[in-house]
Computed example of a mutant assay.
Amino acid sequence: MPDLHFARVLRCLLVGSALAVAGTAWSAGGSKPVLSACAGQSPPFVWMTKGLGSQGFSVELLGKVATGLGRTARIQELPWARCLRDVEAGRIDVAVDAYDDVARRTKFVYSMPYHTLTPQVFYVPVAPDSGPPATTAEALQKLKGCGVHEYTYEHYGLSTARMDLNAKTNRQMLRMLLAGRCDFAVEELEYIIGGRQTLADWPDETALRSYRPEWAQPPQTALSGRQGARRRTHPGSPDRRRNCGAGKPR
């Protein structure tokens, strides 16, 4: 059954990606068009190192999708805000591991989601035996939170109006929290564990604590392309994505 599920996911990703692809670049040899993609450092799903290139499950999945579309995958690391801007402008075909939300749907189309992640709230206790500063979305909203620029926190039920979003990466966000610039930070557990195990210069988390916010929706990731690149379908043709499911808003 897992093989059948993977085949279904891959088939739906191919449909979604074909709808999202914007232009046609060609590989260096000119033999195949390129599926260009961008992503941030987000191990264990995407990470890039000198000499080893791009690694991770999402990188492998992108390669499968590109092959299914008759293309060669080319992925580059970019700050997430720039990655989204370049996809929206049509300079890059797809963003990898994108979260869906209401505002982004006016600009982007999405493939079937392929990861479901674990929301987490991080904080520094005021005393060794003290608990979190707040345990509901309403209470957290009254405090100052840290986040990453252009990340969406809709699935936490939080407005970004009172959040410091000056960090460009999760590393910077955690350093801001440890420095006392905010009362809490939110990020999915998989990304924090992946960064801790993989990335150099990761901050010391000894002073940090965290908990799973039960009210938050587990977000799902997908490939995302610009809205204007959507292919038109014949008025009488069925929507081939109707059985592929929809991602929960992030």
Rank of each mutant, 00 (worst) to 15 (best):
Q172V: 03
E190A: 13
L165D: 14
R181L: 08
T136F: 04
Q172N: 06
R175S: 14
Y151R: 13
V148K: 06
G194I: 01
T169A: 02
T152S: 15
L177R: 05
E150W: 03
E188W: 02
P203Q: 08
D164P: 13
R171M: 05
L140S: 12
V186K: 11
Y156R: 06
P132T: 01
C146R: 05
A139N: 08
M163R: 12
A200Q: 15
K144C: 04
L174M: 15
G147Y: 00
Y191D: 14
C146V: 01
P132Q: 04
A134W: 00
E138G: 08
L140W: 04
R175V: 13
T136R: 10
T135Y: 01
R171F: 00
K142E: 08
A139E: 11
R175I: 07
V148L: 02
V186M: 08
D201T: 03
T198I: 02
M176R: 10
Q197S: 13
D164W: 00
R181M: 10
H149I: 02
D204N: 15
Q141I: 00
L189Y: 09
E154G: 12
L178R: 11
G157D: 03
M176A: 15
T152I: 01
R196H: 13
D129W: 02
I192A: 03
Y151S: 11
R171L: 02
E150N: 14
M176I: 00
A137K: 12
E150M: 10
Y191S: 14
T160K: 14
P128T: 08
E188I: 07
K144G: 10
A127E: 13
A179V: 07
S130N: 10
N170F: 00
N166M: 03
A179C: 09
T135K: 12
G195A: 06
A127Y: 00
R171Q: 15
Q172S: 07
G195F: 01
L158D: 05
T169N: 07
A127N: 10
M176C: 05
P203Y: 02
E138F: 02
V148P: 13
Y156T: 03
E190P: 11
G194T: 07
E154I: 03
R181A: 10
T169C: 02
I193G: 05
N166Q: 15
V186G: 12
F184E: 09
G180H: 09
E188R: 12
M163S: 09
L189I: 04
N166A: 12
D183T: 07
D164T: 06
A167R: 05
C146G: 14
S130G: 07
E138A: 15
T169K: 03
T152E: 08
C146Q: 07
E154F: 02
A200C: 01
S130H: 09
R171G: 14
